[in-house]
């Protein structure tokens, strides 16, 4: 059954979208990642204009991260104060991101920009996952140098002013740190159609040094606000949010995520992380191929004068 997407202005088979949501949902349930960094490029492959893929993904991630956030909230896994600082940075970052996005769209370079940044980003993610997966396989040899390095980093962050106490996370750090992390993630989220958890969570662990039990819930807290802001501004300035597309992906996604969480306890996590790394590499390769190979049609038409 094909359905016409009113904003993307293409007809797509409804079951393709539902199963896409389901598939990416399973992956995000298995690995605890949002999946925006996979969904956005796949939507582009399906023929959704890149700008609309990004705006719509912000809307979808808003729904899925709200659902996840409520779960962590009930278990007390959210550091509201830390989340508020991350959010403040994120709101500024995502607003700036949408502004940059609008400028790039108006000069006709947004599609190129999205593709090239994704190639770099996906390659980085895939190599990180591969490295992590391979390290886990040979974890018998603990590293010696790691300790001293971490201490040095801590000293650097201690020099920053505006220190604040974060009780839930038992931290006393400069408030500039969560603001900066939130800002960077906000820019990325608004421009690339991702939640940014896979950038934010390592930053929270290694830069902010937050305890593990508050990391995921607090990052979801930030993602809810940032994707809400990105959705609102992308719809307002760029008419880039297709609510029909977003809701179809959400419907598949929530079911997929539940399945993924259930299967997660039964499978070999290391093997599957390698599998995910290969999927990410394949998507990265597909995008790179589109950029490198001479396109069949060099010309393109857009309505209106830009």
């Amino acid at each position: 059954m094909t359905i016409y997407l009113p904003i993307a202005e293409i007809s797509v088979n409804m079951f393709v979208l539902l199963s896409l949501g389901l598939g990416v949902g399973v992956l995000s349930g298995l690995f605890g990642v949002g999946g925006g960094f996979l969904m956005t490029p796949i939507l582009i492959f399906l023929g959704v204009p890149p700008a609309i893929a990004v705006g719509t993904e912000a809307n979808q991630i808003l729904a899925s991260s709200t659902s996840g956030f409520l779960g962590y909230w009930r278990r007390g896994g959210v550091d509201v104060k830390m989340g508020t600082f991350l959010m403040a940075g994120g709101l500024v970052g995502s607003s700036l991101g949408v502004l940059l996005f609008t400028i790039l769209k108006n000069i006709g370079q947004i599609d190129f920009f999205i593709k090239i940044v994704y190639v770099v980003l996906l390659f980085a993610i895939a190599s990180m996952m591969l490295a992590e997966g391979l390290l886990e396989k040979h974890r018998a040899h603990p590293k010696r140098g790691g300790r001293t390095k971490k201490k040095r980093r801590r000293n650097w962050t201690r020099l920053l002013p505006f220190k604040t106490r974060f009780r839930t996370s038992r931290l006393y750090i400069s408030s500039l740190l969560p603001l900066a992390v939130g800002f960077v993630v906000g820019v990325l989220a608004a421009m690339l159609g991702i939640g940014g958890g896979f950038v934010m969570i390592p930053a929270m662990i290694y830069i902010l040094r937050m305890p593990p039990h508050t990391v995921t819930g607090t990052s979801l807290f930030q993602i809810v606000f940032v994707t809400a802001n990105a959705t609102f501004l992308q719809a307002g300035f760029n008419q880039a949010v297709d609510i029909v597309l977003a809701m179809l992906l959400v419907a598949g996604g929530v079911i997929g995520a539940q399945l993924g969480v259930r299967w997660g306890s039964r499978i070999d996590a290391v093997q599957f992380r390698l599998l995910l790394a290969i999927i990410v590499l394949a998507v990265c390769g597909g995008l790179l191929w589109e950029l490198v190979v001479q396109p069949n049609e060099l010309f393109s038409i857009t309505e209106g004068i830009r």
Binding site: Q60, A228, T231, I243
Partner: peptide, 18 residues
């Protein structure tokens, strides 16, 4: 206004899913 509605619908969908 459309953006605002899109935000509300997504929040609602998230709550329902949860």
């Amino acid at each position: 206004l459309y953006g605002f509605c899109a935000v509300l619908i997504a929040l609602l969908a998230g709550v329902v899913a949860n």
